[in-house]
Computed example of a mutant assay.
Amino acid sequence: MLHPQAQALLQLMADKGVPPTHTLAPQEARRLYLERSGYTQPDRPQIAESRNVSIPALHGTIAARLTRPVVPGAASGDALPLLVYFHGGGWVIGDLDTHETLCQQLADLSACAVLSVDYRLAPEHRFPAAVDDAVAAAQWAAVNAARLGIDPARIAVGGDSAGGNLAAVAALALRDAGGPALRFQLLIYPVTDQRRGSESYRTRATGYGLGADTMAYFCAHYLHDEAQHATDWRASPLLHKDHSRLPPAFVLVAGYDPLRDEGMAYAQALSAAGTPATLVSYERQMHGFITLGRVLDEANDAVHLCADQLRRAMR
């Protein structure tokens, strides 16, 4: 059964008349997503540094935010491992601010720097703009390791939902391009198959926060041609023909999430191809729960678990 705290949150949203994302224009959906995050996210930890950086790209610049944790016993200039993080939000909503608390938590608990990437959003910038930005950000971080104060041999990618999709796709793209080599993938309820035909899409289609209607809305805004692009591995990394020789992955899914099955399938595909992959399912939780630590106790446990996996991988 759905966790009682998650049930209570969904009931509160219904009582307050929070409109489903798929009923809103993208700009309004972005505003409300940012507004709601302030009520449900936990307090931010103490960190050593948070600064905005600009990543040059063919279309101009990509905004990003670098977070450095307080590391007892380390000098301020010591090279730290780096997690390049891509926020969730269906490629349509979300930004550096909606996920700043999570990025700071991950930095604090893992002793890794985190570079949060403000990739271009749809529908203003459709597929594969976000993919191009994700790959460019990871490449730039490796090239500019000294400037960022990070260790180029210890770079990971990660993200939640659409951001987990971008992390998985970036790992595949960088492997296929010959580098830079990544140490780890942190994939939090990732989108891996945009054909949207799994059993969890049918059994979790409505009533648990993110629903099939909202995922259809996101995909329609993101993909130019759904029939064609849904089978492109850059949109659906599960459909790549080769999942071998990828960095080890930690895949976290939620039981009451239409994306549950495709996250599990991705972990299975990695393992079957010889890529180390650990899968954990929070069976009583819904999509998006990891950022809701003020109201969901298991969210804080999940953040600690993700950070611990990241810390271990970066040793």
Rank of each mutant, 00 (worst) to 15 (best):
L12Y: 11
M13S: 13
M13C: 10
D15Y: 02
K16D: 13
G17Q: 03
R30G: 00
L32Q: 13
Y33C: 13
R36E: 12
Q41G: 08
R44N: 01
R44Q: 05
R51W: 00
V53G: 07
V53N: 06
I55M: 10
I55D: 12
P56Y: 03
A57E: 08
A57I: 06
A57V: 12
H59R: 14
H59K: 11
H59T: 14
I62D: 03
T67F: 14
T67V: 15
R68K: 13
P69V: 07
V71A: 02
A75G: 15
G77E: 14
V84L: 08
H87K: 11
G90W: 04
G90E: 12
G90T: 08
W91P: 10
H99W: 02
E100I: 01
T101A: 07
C103Y: 05
Q105K: 11
Q105L: 11
D108N: 13
A111D: 15
C112S: 15
V117I: 13
A122M: 07
H125T: 03
P128Q: 09
A129F: 07
A129Y: 10
V131F: 12
D132I: 09
A134G: 13
A136F: 00
V143P: 00
V143L: 11
A146I: 03
R147Q: 14
G149N: 12
I150H: 06
R154Q: 13
A167W: 04
V169L: 13
A170W: 04
A173D: 14
L174W: 00
A177H: 00
P180S: 01
A181Q: 06
L186W: 02
P190G: 09
R196Y: 06
G197I: 06
S200L: 04
S200G: 03
Y201P: 10
A205V: 05
G211E: 09
D213Q: 10
T214W: 01
A216L: 07
C219I: 12
L223N: 05
H224Y: 07
E226F: 04
T231G: 11
T231Q: 10
D232F: 04
A235E: 01
P237I: 00
L238F: 02
L238N: 06
D242I: 02
S244Y: 01
V251W: 01
Y256F: 14
G263C: 02
Y266E: 07
A267R: 10
A267W: 08
A269M: 05
A269N: 04
A269L: 04
A273R: 09
A277L: 07
L279P: 03
V280L: 07
S281K: 08
L292H: 09
L292I: 05
G293E: 05
R294N: 14
R294A: 15
V295F: 03
V295R: 08
L296A: 03
V303G: 07
L305N: 14
R311P: 03
M314D: 12
M314W: 09
R315D: 15
R315E: 15
